[in-house]
Design a protein around this nucleic acid. Structure first.
Lengths: 338, 338
DNA sequence: CTGAAAGCGCTTACAG
DNA sequence: CTGAAAGCGCTTACAG
């Protein structure tokens, strides 16, 4: 392999001069700088990442911890990953993707071995075991998802409470008085998936405040079970005029459920989901939804992380918890009840 | 951070002895070995990855190049990525995920900088520009997808030709005499996505050999366009009794298309797709399909790659091109025509 | 069975 | 403006 020594020799300068000429970290005479740059290019010189990280304690790699759990809908995860990956690259970082089930062990491994400069955690739970490891780590961390204890980390999430309120208010405004909310599986709640009850509680409170009825139910995250569950829900509450869906798998299954029942939306039932526009297109979902903005959240997390890595924000600066405001993307599936 | 020097001092041995005791690469007296192991554990010693890679020229990281193209259906990609990631971890490797559009630049960057020990290429095209870079690289490479020129790389793919034959033969056996094949967008073909015409040509040949009719057509890879295209196809060939689908987006859209037309499968139309079982569950697809085995292909590619990385197979050993035999997963959507 | 030393390829104070 | 040297934290021949 071609090293900086090769470049230096070929350019007739010392290795340090070659290094400085390439990095621009001290003033170098124009002819020397040009000559070094030229030689580096012609020799196709690329710094050895291991050597550089050893010398600088910087790897230019971000660790991305994603979990693919049974009770979460995998296609929805992909968009967060791409949001992180694309923004990282834009800022000059590569991504080490870790999908192993034991997140704490993985985190310890990549952190202790100094493979990465910073860490992004996906699917963060209320009481996430990885957080303890992350706080003890040398590298800064950014989360997508709100844990109970946000100390020492930057947090980004959709404002699920506002989302719950907005969903209810939007339908109340249209005249609906009996709503159903299909959430994620109860198992997600037990595991600490706070976004489930954050949306649910806020929706319930909003409904109560307006004196309207909200039936809430957990629904599976896998096909075809979720379809059956939706049928049962609609059977159980025949007078409900609107369906709120905080469950990507349920949203994906809904078109065929409505079809099977001969129900058309919004004529017979108003529907309002919570998923991204990309997701809507992938699954041809004709329902209006609260945009969950996975790419934006992933991007925000990386940007903040890189600011910490590069010292633009110091360890003294306060950690942030930022919520993306929910916005309804209107696909025409809500209307006044008949 | 705690270095091997700390461990050595604490254990009262030299750094080299500490290193050897931990690696087991030369015989160490039992008491010393134990003492070092103990100290390493109590100090939570983890080798610095950069330093180790500099010394050994091994990073224990595999580069994974995935492209998310407009004309491919993203959710189908995820399963390949997980197959690679899970197998890599099982074999002691981490995964550097690269999703940037310019694959050749990315490949050069991670290869030249020695960030990785080997490379897995996804979405390989007939005439993939990344291959030239890969062949010039120091690290071995494994592909998922068959290019025209397979020199210098190990290749894994579904046997799309056999898949095309089997699809046609299966339906011919049931008594069908007029079939439709919906492929990927023509744009994929132009880009060199060989799996499109490999399946298509084999299917056409099989149909010709049996004297039956096969209508072939390209279909979009995005929603909702692909739904419209399917409607047009079914309008154009009203006498066809079976539909073959080599297009994940089309398969995902098909249930609602059939529903809208009041067509039920297999009563009115036999349907046979080409996608994974995982995909079928995600999208609740009730159609029989040729299993595309993304996790298995990803896993095979990584296993072979690691064998090369670790010298179990030398550069002299022949490169392999291995096809996974297509198998039909019967979900009951094919039957004799009415 | 163990230790002192060299070397991997960088970057960056330290001198001049 | 430039060079010689030290040091990052490992591993591994080389000696004994």
């Amino acid at each position: 392999m071609v090293t900086i020594g090769d470049v230096a020799r070929e350019a007739g300068v010392s290795r340090s001069t070659a290094s400085y000429a390439l990095s621009g970290k001290r003033s170098i005479s124009e002819p020397v700088r040009l000559r070094v740059a030229e030689v580096a290019k012609s020799l196709q010189y690329t710094p050895n990442a291991g050597a550089r990280s050893l010398a600088t304690s910087q790897t230019k790699v971000i660790g991305l911890l994603a979990q693919f759990l049974e009770d979460e809908f995998a296609p929805a995860m992909l968009q967060y990953i791409l949001g992180v990956s694309n923004t990282a690259r834009e800022l000059g970082y590569d991504v080490l993707l870790v999908t192993e089930p034991d997140g704490t062990a993985a985190l310890r491994r990549i952190s202790d071995s100094r493979m990465i400069d910073g860490i992004v955690l996906l699917n963060v739970a209320e009481d996430d075991a990885r957080l303890e490891v992350l706080r003890a780590a040398q590298q800064p961390g950014a989360l997508v998802g709100l844990p109970k204890d946000t100390r020492g980390v930057d947090v980004f999430d959709l404002d699920f409470e506002e989302a719950g309120r907005e969903m209810v208010e939007h339908l109340h405004r249209l005249g609906h008085r009996e709503l159903i909310l299909a959430s994620q599986p109860e198992h997600v709640v037990e595991r600490g998936g706070a976004y489930v009850w954050r949306l649910q509680n806020a929706a319930a409170a909003a409904a109560a405040a307006r004196g309207i009825t909200l039936h809430t139910a957990f629904a599976p995250a896998s096909q075809p079970e979720v379809g059956t569950a939706l049928h049962e829900l609609l059977d159980t509450y025949p007078d409900a005029t609107a369906l709120l869906v905080n469950n990507e798998a349920a949203a994906a299954a809904l078109p065929s459920v409505l079809n099977a029942r001969g129900i058309s939306s919004p004529r017979d039932l108003s529907v309002l989901g919570r998923y991204s526009d990309e997701f809507a297109r992938t699954f041809s979902l004709p329902f209006s939804s609260i945009e969950s903005a996975p790419d934006r959240l992933g991007s925000m997390a990386v940007r903040q992380l890189v600011r910490r890595i590069e010292g633009e924000i110091g360890p003294g600066d306060p950690f942030v918890t930022r919520f993306v405001a929910p916005e309804i993307v209107d696909r025409g599936s809500t209307a006044p009840p008949r």
